[in-house]
Simulated scan of single mutants.
Amino acid sequence: MSQATRVATGMVSVAAGAVLAFWTTRNLRHARHADAPGKHVAAARAFNYGSALLALSTLADSTMEHYRGGFENRAMYVAPTVAFASLGAALHGGADQRAYSHHLRHAIQIGSAATGTAGTAFHLYNVTKRPGALSWHNLFYAAPLGAPFALLLSGVLGSVAEQLRDQPEHDPRLFGMPAGKALALVAGVGLFGTAAEAALLHFRGAYQHPAMYAPVTIAPVGGALLMHAALAPPRHAARASAFARAWLRITTALGFAGAGFHAQGVARAQGGWRNWSQNLFAGPPLPAPPSFSALALAGLAALRMRETER
């Protein structure tokens, strides 16, 4: 593939990401103005949508990777199954305008978070049991430590959404603090964790394409700005929120554009998409980048709620 073609493909990927990000945020804005009982329910629905996007990413990624591993361990069926259940619960929650939680949805999301935690422990064991233990080679090519983190985050976002619905409309609180502040901190931490996984995998790829620096710079800055907006004193709150909101919209587009760049990576492999059965497994993971979009959208919902608290 020529350099001009690569540049053109990259520009198309970025444009597609921007369009998808605009469409998603517009739909969330319409949902916010729907006949919901309160702003905390609108924020809960936005977190449900973020949870759904993370669950979809985990479902596709875990199914592909565990299939590549031949489902050698029966426990490898758990992650795709739980991710599928989490996706259904999150989509149901996104359409639900009631101001009280759904016990089955909540139980599924708690199970999703627990499965992600257990999966991280299993993957850590897979790395440490190999010769060299926590070596760069094992971190690159053994079970990816960051992969179950997306399922954990999906469960956390979904569970938090259910807890938020049960809060009083006039003063919703989570973890002993105003709900918007707590939600912004949760989404900010998630952005840092997802960026750490991207940093490891892109380091393995030697940052051979300039776009590979984007997720390890844009996403952490977005997480930092989001957490700063959550903790900023009232006199600086408006400016901090406006700056964080603009950066999170860029992060939302980054996730969708990243999927386009990963598709380009698959196309550049030997045989391209004609050899999809091999290149999808050997190339960059298509389901991974939308995780940034999911967390950025959750952060935008948290900022909207934080502004009403002030």
Score class of each variant (00 low, 15 high):
Gln3His: 12
Ala4Glu: 10
Thr9Ala: 15
Thr9Cys: 05
Met11Ser: 13
Val14Pro: 08
Gly17Arg: 06
Ala18Trp: 09
Phe22Glu: 07
Trp23Asp: 13
Thr25Gln: 04
Arg26Glu: 15
Leu28Ile: 11
His30Lys: 10
Arg32Thr: 08
Pro37Cys: 00
Gly38Val: 02
Val41Leu: 03
Ala42Glu: 02
Asn48Pro: 10
Asn48Thr: 07
Gly50Trp: 03
Leu54Tyr: 10
Leu54Phe: 06
Leu56Gly: 09
Leu56Cys: 11
Leu56Glu: 01
Ser57Arg: 02
Ala60Pro: 13
Asp61Gln: 14
His66Lys: 09
Arg68Pro: 15
Asn73Glu: 05
Val82Gly: 08
Phe84Gln: 03
Phe84Ile: 01
Ala90Ile: 01
Asp96Leu: 04
Gln97Val: 07
Tyr100Ala: 10
Ser101Ile: 00
His103Asp: 12
Arg105Ser: 15
Ala107Lys: 12
Ile108Cys: 04
Ser112Asp: 08
Thr115Tyr: 12
Thr117Trp: 15
Thr120Ser: 03
His123Asp: 00
Tyr125Trp: 08
Asn126Cys: 04
Lys129Gly: 05
Lys129Met: 03
Pro131His: 08
Gly132Trp: 09
Leu134Lys: 14
Asn138Thr: 08
Phe140Glu: 07
Tyr141His: 15
Ala143Gln: 11
Gly146Glu: 04
Ala147Pro: 06
Pro148Thr: 03
Pro148Asn: 06
Leu157Pro: 00
Gly158Pro: 06
Ala161Gly: 05
Gln167Ser: 07
Pro168Leu: 11
Pro168Asn: 14
Pro168Tyr: 12
Glu169Trp: 12
Glu169Thr: 06
Arg173Asn: 07
Ala179Val: 00
Lys181Thr: 02
Ala182Gly: 06
Leu183Met: 04
Ala184Lys: 07
Gly193Ile: 07
Gly193Glu: 01
Gly193Tyr: 02
Ala198Asp: 09
His202Asn: 05
Gly205Cys: 09
Tyr207Lys: 10
Ala211Val: 13
Tyr213Trp: 15
Pro220Cys: 14
Pro220Lys: 08
Val221Arg: 12
Ala224Thr: 03
Met227His: 05
Leu231His: 11
Pro234Tyr: 15
Ala240Tyr: 11
Ala242Glu: 09
Phe243Leu: 13
Ala246Cys: 11
Arg249Gly: 14
Ile250Pro: 12
Gly255Val: 00
Ala257Gly: 03
Ala269Pro: 01
Gln270Asn: 07
Gly271Arg: 13
Asn275Val: 14
Gln278Met: 15
Pro284Ala: 15
Pro284Gly: 07
Pro285Glu: 01
Pro287Trp: 00
Pro287Cys: 02
Ala288Arg: 05
Phe292His: 05
Leu297Asp: 00
Leu297Pro: 02
Leu300Met: 01
Ala302Lys: 01
Arg304Ser: 05
Met305Lys: 08
Arg310Tyr: 11
